[in-house]
Design a protein around this nucleic acid. Sequence first.
DNA 1: AACCACCATGAATCGCTGT
DNA 2: TACAGCGATTCATGGTGGT
Lengths: 368, 368
Amino acid sequence: MTKKMGADALPLNTILAGDCIEMMNSLPEASVDLIFADPPYNLQLRGDLHRPDNSRVDAVDDAWDQFASFEVYDRFTSAWLKAARRLLKPNGAIWVIGSYHNIFRVGTALQNEGYWILNDVVWRKANPMPNFRGKRFTNAHETMIWASKEEGAKYTFNYEALKSLNEGVQMRSDWVLPICNGHERLKDDSGEKAHPTQKPESLLHRVLVGSTNPGDVVLDPFFGTGTTGAVAKMLGREFIGIERDEGYRKVAEKRIANVRKFDRDALQVSASKRAEPRIPFGQLVERGMLRPGEQLYSMNMRHKAKVRADGTLVGGDVKGSIHQVGAALEGAPSCNGWTYWCIRRDGKTVPIDIFRQQIRAEMAERPI
Amino acid sequence: MTKKMGADALPLNTILAGDCIEMMNSLPEASVDLIFADPPYNLQLRGDLHRPDNSRVDAVDDAWDQFASFEVYDRFTSAWLKAARRLLKPNGAIWVIGSYHNIFRVGTALQNEGYWILNDVVWRKANPMPNFRGKRFTNAHETMIWASKEEGAKYTFNYEALKSLNEGVQMRSDWVLPICNGHERLKDDSGEKAHPTQKPESLLHRVLVGSTNPGDVVLDPFFGTGTTGAVAKMLGREFIGIERDEGYRKVAEKRIANVRKFDRDALQVSASKRAEPRIPFGQLVERGMLRPGEQLYSMNMRHKAKVRADGTLVGGDVKGSIHQVGAALEGAPSCNGWTYWCIRRDGKTVPIDIFRQQIRAEMAERPI
DNA sequence: AACCACCATGAATCGCTGT
DNA sequence: TACAGCGATTCATGGTGGT
């Protein structure tokens, strides 16, 4: 790892050991092009959580995620954001990632410190952890805030590169990417995950391609196991990491040493598989294409069923999905409800599948 | 529109004219089940925005949407959230929708006022307006925050209904729904859109099916053209709207008058098993479905236990309920004995839960 | 080699009711 | 109000080990 330290020179491609606020304040002002920050989320978890198979969820219970109150968290957030802003060049920018536990505090602090929000970007996880108790929505996304140093500042935005990454369509504010697992997930010597919240390289790839140029200096004040540094090196950007945990630093050093610049595989990971879009029948009801209470008729006209507000059917004394009710009424092991159930429109009998085709056609015009 | 006003009675299915904070404070406390709020966005657009072909984009530039500073906006936000919280029943909940311009302030204020965030939900727009200048990401989503009145409060969550709406997979925190246009988009007399930020009915359908029950009272303090009221009426919920703009109120009145409520049985929604009547295991023994001394086998066939006359089990040297013995033998923190224990019938292995289902079916025919 | 069954796991603010 | 007992609850992915 190169270490250039001189009067006003930056410690490029180095991981600095220590508290991020102190370390940032020791660096020269207006010297960094981009900051990517993944601060503690302040999760406030209570007891243990078990999966339905009784295995225990390995939660984030590390000391670095514990704060006494919102007030303490807010002070911490404002302090590191202030130090970060001092480091940014006038046309620099910042990305911060978080979840609903902390991201509203972070966004407020960003605005209060004078940053100018450019977009919030949603990372839609292709494979999130489910909600095991069925008490809330699956927590399937995290939020990133992208902001410039101040209102009116110029900032780097590689519009065409992002468009290319997105199959020729303008990049949107929601990114579907898988979470970090498999071989990319770093393990410690005992085979356990080295860091509880390692971010996928595909995410950083899109951030750095979109908002930096080759040779730019990228700083990450919560470096962890160094995803930002690894991707920066691949893409020919300079990085500075700050991390106070020695274990994480060691893993990151080793990881980054093994990275080759311009690794083409990185481009491959960034695109998540796009499956044939699945249209839930319930969406026809939500979108008003079918009305709750409306009659459906079986293709052979032998059976009827009524649509309910939650997208299930009632036919005779059978309740369930369009497929379940069709199968039950026909005494068949399975049934494709989309082609089995029909509606009457203008005296004609039409399968409900026409609505699904309509939605798919809309989606094809403007892909996911 | 019905108007029932009395001592402590609620003005159900009415649009109240006036300032939302004053009007909320005039209503009785702890009287509302759900609040849905779409507050002004504080967009701070500088000058007009033009498409590449120079046609003007009709941005949100109404006077009510301008705020002098974040401080003023924060005061306003805290004030209406406080008034709203007073109105909520102890087990009530709130939804607030916004974009990056205001949602971070709103989320922070929610937490500061004592609400407890349950999820943030991203409305992923299927057909957003592109970013014409190519200087940022297409702003393709809005954020909703769902919160209960305080930590530990119960709240309504129709898990099974939402799962049905989503083709049998639990509902995630990212919802893909189209924006409101076409016939659903209300026009004023001159053919212009009646409201700049009319929300789609599909969005409210999912919110109300998921977090209210029929007959619940839903309040919308920024009623606009009344999407909340229209969908509440369809779904057999009661609404209260507050709107200070007379033009919006008139459009909303007319709109809601034309809405038909769905059939009562169409509003029945897939129920959770938690709502089913509780059957003591001992009843199976009393009714002779299982005989004292009969052998039960664990689902994985690794353990056996014997039924006793009082409805407890003996397995190895463990005695207790079907759940306790199952948990002890598996070394698990808990166990559902109904699905864990099986009997042999005609060479097949069947969970004892079939007996419970049988009893429940009898009870449905002849309710107690 | 190809395929399949099985298992492990991921930033999680994850009960309710009767005594 | 604290405590104990009942019993409800998961999706996508990737690795491993066997046929």
